[in-house]
Measured scan of single mutants.
Amino acid sequence: TTYKLILNGKTLKGETTTEAVDAETAERVFKEYAKKNGVDGEWTYDDATKTFTVTE
């Protein structure tokens, strides 16, 4: 399944996708990605669109 991440950081904005077996796995991948890019904020997930959003 393809999951999407929307980054709404103070200095970094953008989108990325990952293939994962479930939302929990995708969330771990995306949180590591955000951490590596210095983005830390509020996380939300929309199951209907398989989209995570992190907003600083």
Rank of each mutant, 00 (worst) to 15 (best):
K50E: 03
L5I: 03
V54P: 01
T17M: 10
L5H: 00
L12W: 14
V54E: 01
F30G: 00
G14H: 10
V39P: 02
I6T: 05
A34E: 01
T11S: 13
K13T: 11
T18Q: 06
D47A: 11
F30L: 04
K50P: 00
V54D: 01
T18R: 05
I6G: 02
D40F: 13
K36Y: 11
E27A: 14
A34Y: 03
V39T: 04
N37C: 07
I6V: 11
L12S: 09
A23D: 06
T49A: 10
T11Q: 10
Y45L: 02
T1S: 10
T55H: 08
E27I: 09
A48Y: 09
I6Y: 08
K35T: 14
T2F: 14
D47H: 10
A23T: 12
Y3D: 00
K50A: 06
T17G: 04
F30V: 02
T2M: 13
L7C: 05
N37Y: 14
N37D: 03
K35N: 11
E32A: 13
D46I: 05
K36C: 07
E32D: 10
G38Y: 05
F30A: 01
F30K: 00
T44Y: 10
K35R: 12
D40M: 13
A20W: 02
K4R: 12
V21W: 13
I6M: 06
V21R: 07
Y45C: 01
K10A: 14
F30W: 02
A48Q: 14
D22V: 03
A34C: 07
Y33T: 03
T17R: 07
Y33A: 03
L5D: 00
Y3A: 00
L12Q: 11
D47I: 12
T11G: 10
A26M: 01
K36P: 01
W43S: 01
K13E: 06
K31R: 14
W43M: 04
K36D: 08
G9N: 04
A23C: 08
E24P: 09
T16P: 02
N8E: 08
E24F: 13
R28G: 07
T17A: 08
E42T: 15
T2H: 09
K50V: 03
E56S: 08
T2G: 05
T55F: 08
A48K: 14
A48D: 13
G38S: 06
K10Y: 10
T51L: 04
T11N: 15
D22I: 03
A20T: 06
V29G: 04
T55A: 05
N8G: 04
T2K: 10
K35E: 08
F52Y: 07
T44S: 15
F30D: 00
Y33R: 03
E15P: 04
G41I: 01
D22L: 04
V39Q: 03
L5Q: 00
T1V: 09
G38A: 07
Y3S: 00
L7I: 15
K31N: 04
E32H: 09
Y3F: 11
D22R: 04
T44N: 11
F30H: 01
F52Q: 00
G14I: 15
A23N: 07
K50S: 05
D40W: 15
T1M: 11
E32Q: 11
K50D: 03
G41C: 02
V54I: 08
A26R: 00
T16S: 13
V39N: 03
K35H: 12
E19R: 08
E32N: 09
D22T: 06
G41R: 01
D46H: 05
E56Q: 14
E42I: 15
N8T: 10
T49P: 02
T2W: 14
T18N: 04
A23W: 14
D47P: 13
G38C: 06
K35Y: 13
E27N: 06
T55D: 07
G38W: 06
N8K: 12
I6W: 04
A26F: 01
L7P: 01
T44W: 10
N8A: 08
W43C: 02
A20I: 03
E27G: 09
D47W: 08
V39L: 11
T53G: 03
T25R: 06
T44H: 12
F52C: 01
T44P: 00
T53C: 06
T17E: 07
T53I: 09
E27D: 05
V39M: 07
T1K: 07
L12C: 09
R28D: 05
E42W: 08
I6A: 03
Y33P: 00
T25V: 10
I6E: 04
T53H: 07
E24K: 13
R28K: 13
E19A: 08
W43P: 01
E56N: 05
D22A: 04
G14P: 04
Y3G: 00
E32K: 08
D47S: 11
T55M: 06
T51E: 04
I6H: 05
K31M: 09
T18F: 12
N37K: 14
W43E: 00
I6K: 08
Y33S: 02
V39G: 03
F30S: 00
T16Y: 15
Y45T: 01
T11D: 12
K4A: 05
A23S: 10
E42Q: 13
W43A: 01
V29P: 01
E19W: 15
V29S: 07
V29K: 10
T51V: 08
E27W: 15
W43I: 03
E15A: 08
E15R: 06
K4F: 14
T16I: 15
T1H: 15
A26I: 02
G38L: 09
R28M: 11
D22F: 04
F52N: 00
E15M: 14
V29R: 10
V29C: 06
E19C: 09
G38P: 02
T18H: 08
E27R: 13
D47N: 09
E32L: 13
W43D: 00
T51R: 03
G41E: 01
T49N: 08
E56Y: 10
K36E: 11
K36Q: 10
T53Y: 11
D47T: 12
L12H: 15
L5R: 00
T55R: 06
F30E: 00
D46F: 05
V39H: 04
V54W: 03
A34P: 00
T16H: 15
E32S: 10
T51W: 02
Y45N: 01
T53F: 08
Y33L: 05
V54M: 06
K4S: 07
E32G: 06
A48I: 10
G38N: 14
Y45P: 00
G41K: 01
T51C: 05
A26T: 01
E15S: 12
L5G: 01
A23H: 15
N8P: 03
G14S: 15
G38R: 09
G41H: 02
A20N: 03
T44C: 06
E19G: 05
V29D: 05
K50Q: 11
T53A: 05
E32F: 06
Y33G: 01
K35A: 15
G9T: 13
Y45V: 02
L12F: 15
K4D: 02
R28V: 10
W43L: 03
K31Q: 08
L5Y: 02
T49M: 06
E19S: 12
I6S: 04
E15I: 12
L7V: 10
T1E: 15
T53M: 10
V21K: 15
N8D: 15
T18I: 14
E15Q: 09
Y45K: 01
A26G: 02
L7E: 02
Y33Q: 03
T17N: 07
K35Q: 11
E24V: 13
E19P: 05
F52K: 00
E27H: 11
V39C: 05
Y45H: 02
L7Q: 02
E42A: 12
G9L: 14
E42L: 10
T55G: 04
K4V: 11
K13A: 07
T1Y: 14
T49S: 13
E32M: 09
K10T: 11
R28C: 06
G9I: 08
E42Y: 11
F52T: 01
K13H: 11
K35W: 15
I6L: 09
G14E: 14
D46L: 04
E24Q: 14
T2D: 04
A23K: 09
K13L: 07
E15Y: 12
Y3M: 01
